[in-house]
């Protein structure tokens, strides 16, 4: 098992988890989100292959209302 920070909270995951696995946890499947792992943007085409490492800082962001 590995532990990452997902949107600021500790999240435990099986080894060999990829970015796409996080969408199920967050309920973000099919949503238009940006993914940032350790300050680097992970583009949609790389999300099924990008393996997460213990200690990764992951941010999943979307557009909300704002002025």
């Amino acid at each position: 098992m590995i532990t990452i920070k997902l949107n600021g909270k500790d999240q435990t995951l099986p080894d060999a988890s990829v970015v796409n696995d996080l969408f199920l946890i967050l309920g973000a499947e099919g949503k238009n989100v940006a993914v940032v792992v350790n300050e680097t943007i992970v583009r949609p085409e790389n999300r099924s292959s990008h393996r997460l490492q213990d200690g990764d800082q992951v941010e999943i962001l979307a557009f909300a209302g704002g002025g």
Binding site: N7, V33, L61, A64
Partner: peptide
């Protein structure tokens, strides 16, 4: 139209305005 960037939160129904806008 302006939008704000926020951490995705499934509890907030208004999140992910990209599609509808």
């Amino acid at each position: 139209v302006t939008v704000a960037l926020r951490r995705f939160n499934r509890e907030q129904a208004g999140d992910d305005l990209f599609g509808p806008l």
